[in-house]
């Protein structure tokens, strides 16, 4: 039994088929990248996997249990793409934003305890943003903001972290730091990471496995990072690339020609 299993999932928005018989499996502790062009159904797939959307047919299973039958979903954390385009004049401090990650687990009518705030500070330390805890969220750079949202995602100690295009709009240095942080969360804390991205070059270096999507379907032709065999980037994005083998980690990557 796989940790996460998506079985024959179909999903349509206003009669337009977005996911077509999607099936995939993810094991505990994996770092999986899901890539594909715009409109390929990546974001819809992640929303179905976290339970934000209910599939028209098919099911999403966590350790064999249908997600629709799981009431406490606090083991799943999801960082939507839209989080990064929030109202930057919102008067919330960094620590207030991170504490939001604890609200659902805390339950109605209950205030955060001293222990809860300790968890908030711990999460901020993990993402290296503790010293910014009192700063207004709108006064952070794109990279810092992204770290704060990741802290909000991990403060409730989830087992799985889904991220939708987390590298959008951030500079190369922040992107590198983000991947290091995700690797740390994956290796040291055992968090299973599923990341939707366009960022093929970076994800092929960091993820254990790549899943490709085109036209609402899983593209079986580009399984794993075995890009020596499959020129999936050209296939997916229809632009020429060359394959590069890295000496330091034996991973493959791709570069524009």
């Amino acid at each position: 039994m796989s940790y996460i299993e998506v079985k024959n999932v179909n999903f349509a928005y206003d009669g337009r088929q977005v996911l077509r018989n999607v099936s995939l499996k993810i094991e505990k502790g994996e770092f999986v990248g899901i890539i594909g062009p715009n409109g390929s159904g990546k974001s819809t797939l992640v929303k179905v996997m976290v339970g934000n959307l209910v599939p028209s047919t098919g099911e999403v299973l966590y350790e064999g249990v249908n997600l629709q039958n799981i009431k406490d979903r606090s083991f799943i954390s999801y960082l939507p793409q839209r989080s990064f385009s929030f109202n930057s004049s919102f008067p919330a401090s960094v620590e207030e934003v991170v504490s939001m990650g604890l609200y659902a687990r805390k339950g109605l009518f209950k205030r955060l305890s001293k222990e809860d705030w300790e968890k908030v500070y711990e999460a901020l330390k993990i993402v290296d943003m503790f010293e910014f805890r009192s700063r207004l969220i709108g006064r952070l750079s794109g990279g810092q903001l992204q770290r704060v949202f990741i802290a909000r995602s991990i403060v409730s100690e989830p087992q799985i972290l889904f991220l939708d295009e987390p590298t959008t709009g951030i500079d190369a240095k922040s992107e590198k730091a983000l991947y290091e942080l995700l690797e740390k969360l994956n290796k040291e804390r055992g968090i299973t990471i599923v990341m939707m991205t366009h960022d093929i070059m970076a994800i092929t270096n960091k993820a254990h496995r790549i899943i490709c999507m085109t036209d609402g379907k899983i593209n079986e032709k580009c399984e794993a990072i075995d890009i020596e065999k499959h020129d999936f980037t050209s296939f997916l994005y229809e632009y020429p690339v060359k394959k590069v083998k890295h000496q330091h980690n034996n991973n493959g990557s791709v570069e524009h020609v």
């Binding site: 406490d72 979903r73 960082l79 939507p80 939001m100 990650g101 609200y103």
Partner: peptide, 17 residues
């Protein structure tokens, strides 16, 4: 706390349960 989360990020608040 619930009103704050919904006001800040309704989608994330929904997903959080």
């Amino acid at each position: 706390k619930e009103l704050l989360y919904i006001t800040f990020d309704e989608e994330a608040a929904t997903i959080s349960g």
